[in-house]
Simulated scan of single mutants.
Amino acid sequence: MNEISQIIQETTEKIMKDLCTKEVVEAAEQDIFPTELWQTLVETGMTTIGIPEESGGTGGSLADALTFLRIAAQFSAPIPIAETFVANWLLSKIGLPLLDKTTTIASFQYGNPITFNEASGGWTISGSAHDVPFARYGEAILVIGESEQGNMVAIVDPDTCRIEEGKNYAGEARDHLYFKDVPVESDNVYSLSEVNANEFYYLTALIRGVQMSGALERILELSVKYSKERIQFGRPIAKFQAIQQQIAILAGEVSAAKAMTELAIKSFEAGSGKNQIISAKIRVGEAASLATPIAHQVHGAIGFTEEHALQQSTRRLWSWRDEYGNESHWAKILGEEVLTMEADDLWPFITSMNSKISS
């Protein structure tokens, strides 16, 4: 880890410890947006890490940005930092100014019917997008849709569309957006190349995988801590072999999830990473399905209560695994690619996912 990465990690941890407490997360579930946390992240440049300085960002690598998002996920940060980062990342890719405001994303790529239609003096946007993260708090919405000219992107004022409020299992805002001939001036609509659209599609899945990896690290930390503190039959439950075995399994799943996401990050930075990202999202989802029951078994009933922070992380894991494609979604895509291969191509395909990084 270089000096800049170390500073980013330490700064993120300090901000989150100070301003993203269990009480702040609980308040967010009651629709109290953590304004102080958000403003601090903006003022310190944390929301534009990984975006080149010449594009208006803070600089640093994509890995630095995802480290920031992983640590924020460990603290269950209830703000649209992932969505704002992805929006600014895409804007920088197509040479547009960054946004210094809360931003969310509505894209056609995950089954949302969003279309751009040319109109007098500009364009109109029609369609809908379900489960849009934090849309009610967004000061801008980056909308990606289809048109007769190809994929298009526009920055839309949330007041121009209808927002139907909803929540995921974690109590995070997941709102439904409805666009009915929303007018957008031509100067605010931009063509999105197929390359950038595909990069965006896979980056969103990678980011959710990284966030899930962070939440998994958190539940491991809490489980180990609780097992050392909980006394049963005169000694900590960490002394019991059955508990030790379960925590070992939990630790293995967390390590596998982190290793897969780190491989996917390196692959994406190297200019490829499609199959590594797919594999990471699948593997992290599988880790969540095994890790969350173990964590709750170690904690017993208290892990489900508002008194304990465990449920804030496990509920996010249950929610995030379905966002930007669940295991079934990505397994189908990966399986279809494998089915098109000749027999002699299968093993090179499997081994190439790692050799691309080491080469």
Score class of each variant (00 low, 15 high):
residue 195 V to S: 07
residue 302 I to Q: 11
residue 30 Q to D: 11
residue 112 N to T: 01
residue 292 T to N: 07
residue 96 L to K: 13
residue 14 K to I: 06
residue 197 A to E: 12
residue 327 E to K: 13
residue 203 L to H: 02
residue 26 E to D: 11
residue 12 T to D: 08
residue 161 C to Q: 11
residue 351 T to F: 11
residue 204 T to Y: 00
residue 11 T to E: 15
residue 296 H to L: 09
residue 306 E to C: 00
residue 315 R to E: 08
residue 28 A to M: 05
residue 26 E to M: 05
residue 356 K to M: 15
residue 348 P to F: 09
residue 180 K to Y: 13
residue 318 W to H: 14
residue 107 S to T: 15
residue 263 L to V: 05
residue 359 S to V: 14
residue 270 A to K: 14
residue 50 G to K: 05
residue 176 H to W: 12
residue 340 T to Y: 01
residue 213 S to T: 14
residue 268 F to E: 04
residue 184 V to H: 10
residue 304 F to S: 11
residue 145 G to K: 05
residue 186 S to K: 14
residue 47 T to L: 15
residue 24 V to S: 05
residue 350 I to N: 02
residue 243 I to F: 10
residue 70 R to M: 11
residue 273 G to C: 04
residue 288 A to P: 00
residue 157 D to Y: 09
residue 110 Y to S: 05
residue 277 I to F: 04
residue 51 I to A: 08
residue 19 L to M: 04
residue 62 L to I: 12
residue 79 I to T: 07
residue 252 G to R: 04
residue 327 E to P: 04
residue 118 E to Q: 15
residue 133 P to C: 02
residue 83 E to A: 15
residue 150 G to I: 03
residue 15 I to S: 05
residue 71 I to M: 06
residue 170 A to Q: 12
residue 276 Q to K: 01
residue 192 L to D: 08
residue 115 T to C: 04
residue 254 V to Q: 01
residue 273 G to K: 02
residue 253 E to K: 07
residue 285 G to W: 02
residue 187 D to L: 06
residue 190 Y to E: 03
residue 359 S to R: 15
residue 166 G to N: 07
residue 310 L to T: 04
residue 6 Q to K: 11
residue 262 E to R: 09
residue 197 A to Y: 09
residue 118 E to T: 12
residue 168 N to E: 13
residue 186 S to Q: 12
residue 48 T to P: 04
residue 168 N to K: 08
residue 93 K to L: 09
